[in-house]
Each structure stands twice: as C-alpha cells, then as structure tokens.
C-alpha cells in the first residue's frame, strides 16, 4: 500500500515513465474479468471486494464489465483492512476507510481486488478481516500490478501486469475516479 500513496510526482522529480496507459488498463481489466468468469464458470456465488482506496474503484470497473457479460447487475463491495494491519503501531493512528459487504460471504467465492501487490501484507490483513466476516468457500486475488518483493507466501490469481521493479522505485497507480487525471501506472524514482 505504501507504494501507492496518492501523492503526485514531487516537484523537481521526473514524472516517471508510464508503463500502462488508460487503454492498457482497460484491456487488462477486461481480460481479468473474463479470467475470473472462466475460472469460476460464471458469476453465480461470486463476491467482488475491493480494498480501499483504489481497489474499490477497480472492483467497481470489473463488476461493471461482469454485469455486461452476464446480463445482470453484480454489486461489488469494499473491505477496509486498517484495523487488521500489522504496522499500526509504527506510525500515527490511521483513519478508517469504508467497509461495505454487499452479500453474506459464507459459502461464496470471494475475489479480492487491489491495485498493487508487493509485500503481500495488505492481503494477509484482508484474509484476516474476511475470516471475521464469515467462511467463504474460496478466496481469490485480482491485482492490476504485481511488482514482486513478496514478504509473505501470497500470490495473485489474476494479474493485470507483472512489473519487475527495484525497491528504490515507486509504482503509482492513478485512476480517474479519485486522482482526477487519466488512468495510468507509472514507475517513479529509482537510480537513473
């Protein structure tokens, strides 16, 4: 999550290089939608949960595409993981984000959606949060970008793009809904 802070390129810093533009992101999300449907056969018994903040918007976009393909409305939800973080004591207290579970998760297949997968700690927290909400039949993970550097044994089932990065680099995902600019994924900083 630290890699996706909403801060836009600091002044005097290079704006970074764009690795995914808006059409790339759109195409990746369409592909992920179809992969989710293919893997689970259809959208029956699926619950899409985005992890705030950008994961929620990605989940909404995937749900919109899924509704089109399936011909019925699929409502995505949001799962805030703040209270389950393992680094709460390492900084000032964090504000909570909104949690909205559209449907009972018992016996369902839950697809977690996030923007960037790195250490895997956010997903670990999300799995704990989910366990307190019920007992899903299965949990799958969809991410827009997988940049490696895992610190926990966690992997994504659906990946928009694998992006090998160095730890000195920052991956920034910008989405129209909250960043008020065109969708993009950029790599900033690093040793150039």
């Amino acid at each position: 999550m630290a890699s996706t802070s909403p801060a836009v390129g600091t002044p005097g810093h290079s704006p970074g290089r764009t690795v995914l533009d808006d059409t790339d992101i759109s195409r990746a999300l369409t592909r992920i939608t179809h992969e989710i449907l293919e893997k689970n056969r259809d959208a029956e018994g699926l619950v899409l949960l985005g992890i705030p903040t950008r994961g929620v918007h990605l989940a909404q976009r995937i749900a919109a595409r899924m509704s089109e393909v399936e011909g019925r409305t699929i409502t995505p939800g949001a799962l805030d993981i703040t209270m389950y973080r393992d680094d709460l004591r390492r900084g000032p207290v964090r504000s909570l984000e909104h949690t909205d579970i559209p449907d009972d998760v018992d016996g369902k297949t839950v697809v977690l959606v996030d923007d960037v997968l790195m250490s895997g700690r956010t997903i670990r927290a999300a799995l704990d949060a989910l366990a307190d909400l019920g007992r899903p039949k299965a949990v799958q993970l969809a991410v827009l970008v997988d940049r490696g550097h895992r610190e926990l044994p966690i992997r994504a089932d659906f990946v928009g793009k694998n992006l090998p990065t160095s730890l000195a680099e920052k991956v920034k995902v910008r989405l129209e809904e909250i960043d008020e600019q065109t969708d993009s994924v950029t790599i900033e900083g690093g040793s150039e």
Binding site: M83, Y84, L88, D128, A131, D132, L133, G134
Partner: peptide, 9 residues
C-alpha cells in the same frame, strides 16, 4: 452486526 464482533487492533 457481524458474526465475530471483534477486531484485533
């Protein structure tokens, strides 16, 4: 309102 009314925070 949740089945497990507890947070680990």
């Amino acid at each position: 309102k949740r089945p497990i009314k507890k947070l680990p925070t």
